[in-house]
Design a protein around this nucleic acid. Structure first.
Lengths: 186, 186
DNA sequence: TTGATCATTTACTTATTAGTAAGTATATTT
DNA sequence: AAATATACTTACTAATAAGTAAATGATCAA
């Protein structure tokens, strides 16, 4: 793996999460990394290519995390806290999440980026639904209704919590985080 | 009031809600309306000017709605449903809301647009908090914790519900909508 | 009727964008 | 040692962006 390639992806993701997909350019990356524009095109022929790679990378990281959680067999409450911690970290860094950044720009994305973003969302919702289902069966969580509907609500709260925190202030996210966990307490 | 000015604002808002602030240009508006680029600059000297005007217009419409609800003194449950209906309408039109569109782009907005978006959010949260507070006092709503924290959660659910619906499908929003109301039932 | 104000077009500028083709230096392989 | 692949740079293109100055036509008031 090329270190330059990795730096491009890292900075590209950072720009997506802080300024948005349509507000960053290859220039932003090349000037920051002290390389030329064409060097980025060498690794990522087009911007949609870079976008898709970044989303794929997010999926991989998420899958590694759930794999890790599974192998250590933590209880459901701990797993939920670990999941929410991803968003807490983003909040500390004043970032939104990849879904919250690319979701509003969805209609401007390439087909491949759209597809990967949908995959990322599906995977998150499916994992969360399963966790909620198991957790309620084990008496760790208490909530009304279908686990999948609850997963939609929790994911939405995290996604927009980060956005709201950016517009208002960071404590807004903390309040949402706390409320979500309180609501799940038996 | 100029009809052209109104059409520009309407289409500008539409573009923000479907494609995002940084993905639309004056060209998009002028070609659609059959006018020249410079005609838009006549009414809105800069794009940030147009953006700010659109957010101000959203605030005005929201304030008219709550004024209307107040004068007709509906009960809290009805008022909550009316509030959520704004988002249901956006969902039918495959749009996100103004906060959900401009929130992720916040760092790229002008100071005046940022300020108006913050005002819009404050007004929404304050109104929702009051509604929740009164509703619980009257036995119309039941929920744990501080009404303001609940307001953050509900607003977040709506904002990201629209985004999630765009990425996955429209029914996701409906599910979130239903869950929010179910959770508020005494 | 003249003059002014309003609404718009014409014609442009400057900056930035994604993207490309061809060249170069450095390793690596044969 | 020669050929090849890798990792870039140089130098460009074509398109699009926001924005502006000056001209034009229409409406309206004095």
């Amino acid at each position: 793996m090329s270190i330059t390639r990795e730096k491009i992806m890292e900075l590209g993701e950072d720009l997506i999460l802080t300024r948005g997909y349509n507000a960053f350019s290859y220039q932003d990356i090349s000037s920051e990394l002290g390389i030329k524009n064409a060097a980025i095109h060498y690794y990522f022929p087009s911007k949609e290519n870079l976008g898709t790679s970044i989303v794929k990378n997010n999926i991989q990281r998420f899958e590694e995390m759930i794999e890790n959680l599974h192998s250590r067999n933590f209880d459901e409450w701990h797993q939920m806290e670990t999941f929410l911690r991803i968003y807490s970290k983003s909040n500390r860094e004043q970032k939104v999440c990849i879904l919250g950044s690319l979701g509003p720009d969805f209609n401007t994305l390439s087909e491949s980026t759209k597809t990967e973003l949908q995959r990322m969302t599906d995977i998150s919702i499916n994992w969360l639904s399963d966790l909620l289902s198991r957790g309620r069966a084990n008496g760790v969580f208490a909530f009304k209704g279908d686990p999948r509907n609850r997963a939609f609500l929790i994911l939405s709260a995290m996604v927009a919590g980060l956005q709201l925190a950016r517009v208002m202030d960071k404590t807004v996210f903390k309040s949402i985080h706390m409320t979500i966990l309180d609501d799940l307490k038996p």
